[in-house]
């Protein structure tokens, strides 16, 4: 019932001199180090991952971009991250940062405020996003015109706390993103649970709606990877419903009621959530194939449903992802 571990105080806590070398290197990091010996990183490491204060190159030949500053005649990194170069412009993409939105990104957000003709949405970015009443589909079909009474009952469609999946449509002058849900794929979320992972682990893919087929739960499990780091794991639906085809239930778009999900389905959702959390903990970029492969690995090894024990986590990461975390 209880697993209690006693951990010795870490080096920063106990102020001891012997710092254990627990530094692990991700495969991508190892690759990156061999890569760029010719290019940048005039600092001690000479690689394209830089730390704050590390000299990148001379400012006489290159221009400074985001994440850098000029001191004397050198371009110096102001953040930890990877060097990116566009012609003469040098910038550093931070390893950890808030989600930086781009037009066309698929995001998951939560309504924080209902305002005049618009909703304010928390989308894990620097500022709250805005969803205009004019950029949503209301029940009654795509072609339906919005009338004044719709503006008065906005809370019936989306109220504070509701989760929705949307696309970034444009930016306002102050950099806040404007969202839209004018596709049958987008809208309110139900039948599942939300996870939060670091935004940089979600790559821009062709599709962010993934379906893990049975035997993962009776109807499979749907995963929506929002680019802002919010991940929605829900009970699997049929092909038509996912694509918004004929069987699409346009009246149910704004429903708050969950379907009846059998315990096996909920267990599958929890299992997939655990896998995603485990991968994200280790800083592994998430893709649908990776999630599916880890699920298959669980299936093949006939592990009991429940949280993975430490040795099994390590084994899975070693066998599926190929990284060694046993250090």
């Amino acid at each position: 019932m209880f697993t209690i571990k006693t951990i010795p105080p870490s080096s920063t806590q106990s102020f001891s001199d012997d710092i254990p070398s627990t530094h692990r290197k991700h495969q991508a990091e190892l690759d990156a180090m061999d890569l760029d010996e010719d290019e940048f990183g005039a600092g001690p490491s000479r690689r394209n991952i830089v730390t704050p204060g590390e000299m990148i190159t001379s400012s006489k030949e290159y221009m400074r971009g985001h994440g850098t500053y000029v001191e004397e005649t050198n371009v110096i990194s102001s953040v930890t991250g990877t060097i990116e170069r566009v012609n003469k412009l040098i910038s550093v993409k931070p390893v950890r940062s808030k989600y930086v939105p781009e037009v066309g990104d698929l995001v998951i957000g939560r309504i924080v405020e209902v305002g005049p003709q618009r909703w304010r949405v928390d989308a894990n970015g620097r500022q709250d996003a805005v969803l205009m009443l004019s950029s949503v589909n209301l029940p009654g079909g795509v072609q339906r015109r919005k009338i004044e009474s719709d503006a008065l009952k906005m809370r019936e469609f989306l109220a504070e706390g509701d989760l929705l999946v949307a696309e970034v449509q444009a930016f306002f002058g102050d950099g806040a993103m404007s969202l839209h849900t004018r596709s049958l794929k987008y809208g309110k979320l139900r039948n599942g649970q939300l996870l939060t992972v670091p935004a940089q682990l979600i790559r821009r893919l062709k599709s962010h709606f993934h379906h893990i087929p049975p035997p993962c739960g009776p109807t499979g499990v749907d995963v929506i990877l929002g680019l802002n780091g919010y991940v929605w794991v829900s009970n699997g639906t049929s092909q038509e419903k996912r694509e918004g085809g004929e069987g699409f239930d346009s009246e149910g778009v704004y429903s708050d009621k969950n379907d009846d999900i059998p315990p096996e389905g909920r267990q599958a959702i929890s299992t997939i959530s655990n896998l995603i959390k485990l991968l994200a903990e280790q800083g592994i970029p998430l893709t649908d194939t990776l999630i599916e492969e880890s699920y298959n690995w669980l299936n093949q090894n006939q592990l009991p449903s429940g949280p993975l024990a430490e040795p099994e986590k390590e084994r899975m990461l070693a066998e599926v992802v190929g990284i060694d975390v046993s250090a």
Binding site: F2, I4, I7, P8, P9, S14, Q193, S270
Partner: peptide, 19 residues
């Protein structure tokens, strides 16, 4: 069921450091 597939009377792992 629970969101992280624990049983109802399971606790998350407890880490304790002294001193």
């Amino acid at each position: 069921t629970r969101s992280d597939s624990r049983t109802l009377l399971d606790s998350r792992s407890i880490d304790v450091s002294y001193g």
